Simulated assay, not measured.
Amino acid sequence: MAHSTSETAGTRSKRRAFSIALRGDPATFKTFIGNSDELGFSGVWTQDSLMPTNFSLDPLHQLSYAAAVSDRMRLGISVLFSGYRNPAVLARDLATIDQLSGGRLSVGIGIGNAYHRPRLASLGIDTDRPAIRLVEGIGVMRALWSQEEAAFHGEIYSFSGIRSQPKPIQLPGPPILIGARSEPALRRAVSIADGWTGAAMIPPEQRQAELAILHDELKATGRDPASFKIAVNVYVAVEPDREHARTRVQEILSAGFRSNPVYDADDMAQRVAVYGPVEECAEGLRKILDEGVDEIVLHPMYDHLNQLERLARAVELVDAS
Rank of each mutant, 00 (worst) to 15 (best):
L120W: 12
F41S: 06
A185W: 01
L177F: 04
P59Y: 11
A121N: 09
L211E: 05
A320D: 12
I132E: 12
W45F: 13
D224N: 15
L22W: 03
S4Q: 13
I192M: 12
R248N: 07
D194L: 09
H3R: 13
I138S: 06
G154Y: 10
T46G: 15
I169M: 03
V234R: 15
A121W: 05
F18P: 00
L214N: 05
A273C: 08
W45G: 01
R271W: 09
K30C: 03
V89C: 01
P87D: 02
C281R: 06
L211D: 06
D290T: 02
G34R: 15
T53A: 13
D71N: 14
M301S: 10
L298E: 03
L39W: 00
R223Y: 06
V297H: 00
S64V: 05
P87L: 06
E316L: 07
S191F: 00
E279G: 01
G112D: 02
S146D: 14
P59F: 11
V278H: 07
S158P: 03
R74V: 04
T96G: 05
V238D: 02
E316F: 04
L298M: 11
N113E: 14
Q170F: 01
M51T: 11
I162K: 12
W196C: 04
I178V: 14
N113Y: 13
G195S: 07
E239K: 08
Q62H: 00
G103A: 06
I213N: 02
A114T: 14
T96K: 08
A2S: 09
G256K: 06
E316M: 07
A231L: 14
M73N: 08
T247A: 12
G10K: 10
L211H: 09
R129C: 00
L211Q: 06
S182H: 08
R246K: 15
L105G: 05
A88G: 13
P184H: 11
P300W: 11
A88R: 15
F81K: 11
L94C: 07
K14E: 05
E205P: 00
V272E: 08
P118S: 10
V69F: 02
H61D: 08
L80G: 02
R286F: 05
G40M: 01
A180V: 03
S4G: 07
N233V: 03
L253K: 01
W145G: 09
I97P: 01
T46D: 01
S78L: 12
P184I: 08
A312I: 06
G112C: 08
P118F: 11
H116I: 06
P130W: 09
A209Q: 15
L39P: 01
A314K: 10
Q147K: 12
R188W: 03
G10E: 03
Q270E: 14
P261G: 10
G34M: 06
G24A: 10
R12H: 09
E155C: 05
R104T: 05
N306D: 14
R181I: 09
Q99H: 05
K287E: 13
G124C: 07
N35S: 09
S160D: 15
A66D: 06
D224W: 11
G284A: 08
T11E: 14
V232F: 02
S106L: 11
P168R: 07
D98T: 04
Q47V: 13
N54H: 13
P168W: 09
G24H: 15
F29T: 02
K229V: 03
S56M: 10
N35A: 12
V89H: 01
L186V: 05
